[in-house]
């Protein structure tokens, strides 16, 4: 389990990275945290001829708060989110999710951008990006372009990024300060990729759900939303605060049930497609309950 040979370039700026990528005729790969790429190279499942190491590109390791939008530079490490990066619901949500990204040493190296570019359908950041309708900013030979999350994730390990493009940052729209967030996942062992995860943002106005967003990970070939379930929740009251799972209140359970039916699921050795539907049902409901309990 030793990697195949490659050419190594350590770059200091994003522009330099883009230019090396351009010169490499599609045979180069960006090396970010290396926590997905290097295992794949050790197995020789990935064998890039050129590696462009962006670990020393300071400009990419930056969080910028623009009020409505949090700009996350692609080299910001997972560990940066363990403590909330802002006081609002976004900081909370990112922190809840960050704890589930692998283990501490993985979070110390792995990056936000690397996770998005790698596009594992069970990656927390991919699900959050989809949940919030984030925009990904890519730099290529022809300049920068923005790609909405709904178009960014193509299939397992495949995104809209061209081989010569560098992911610069993700732009995360912030939920309103009063929004409630929930994040639940189920994995076989601590730190493993989840079999399924559900993330929810609930915007509340006048005691009613003004907007709900639900994103699911680990269920199919990319992170997905559950639009039908989201729609069902619009205009519904929140559960009575005493007990969020009180039996007479069924809106969350109904929406979760709907979510489990409306998305495609696929099976693997850890669980069948059918089992993943079970997980969507329970995790969606629990994520909504968690949000409502805030």
């Amino acid at each position: 389990m030793k990697p195949a040979r490659f050419d190594y370039h350590q770059v200091r700026t994003a522009a330099e990275a883009v230019s090396v990528l351009a010169q490499s005729g599609g045979e180069a790969k960006v090396l970010a945290g290396g926590q997905s790429l290097v295992p794949a190279m050790n197995f020789r499942l990935a064998r890039p001829e050129v590696l462009v190491d962006i670990n020393r590109v300071a400009e990419l390791d930056r969080l910028t708060d623009e009020g409505e939008i949090l700009r996350v530079g692609s080299m910001v490490r997972h560990a940066a989110f363990e403590r909330p990066v802002d006081d609002g619901p976004l900081g909370r949500l990112l922190s809840m999710a960050a704890r589930h990204v692998g283990h501490l040493p993985i979070r110390i190296r792995g990056t936000f951008g690397g996770s998005l570019a790698h596009a594992d359908p069970a990656a927390e950041w991919c699900v959050i990006a989809r949940l919030l309708d984030a925009e990904m900013v890519a730099a290529g030979p022809g300049g920068d372009r923005r790609i909405p999350a709904s178009e960014f994730f193509h299939t397992v390990f495949t995104t809209a990024l061209e081989p010569d493009e560098l992911l610069i940052e993700a732009r995360l729209p912030k939920p309103s300060p009063s929004a409630k967030v929930g994040f639940k996942q189920f994995s076989r062992r601590a730190g493993d990729f989840a079999l399924t995860m559900a993330a929810a943002v609930v915007e509340v106005r006048g005691g009613e759900i003004a907007e709900a967003r639900i994103a699911l990970g680990g269920v199919s070939d990319r992170p997905v939303r559950a639009p039908g379930a989201e729609e069902m929740l619009r205009g519904r009251p929140l559960p009575p605060s005493s007990s969020s799972s009180s039996s007479s209140y069924t809106a969350f359970a109904d929406a979760a049930e709907h979510a489990s039916g409306e998305v495609e699921t696929i099976g693997d050795i850890h669980g069948s497609a059918r089992y993943r539907r079970d997980l969507i049902r329970v995790l969606t409901r629990r994520a909504l309950e968690q949000a409502a309990a805030q």
């Binding site: 190594y8 290396g34 290097v38 295992p39 590696l51 670990n55 993985i106 190296r109």
Partner: peptide, 11 residues
């Protein structure tokens, strides 16, 4: 703490 199997010495 980092996994040294997932870093290259050149880094």
């Amino acid at each position: 703490p980092v996994r040294s199997c997932l870093m290259f010495a050149v880094q």
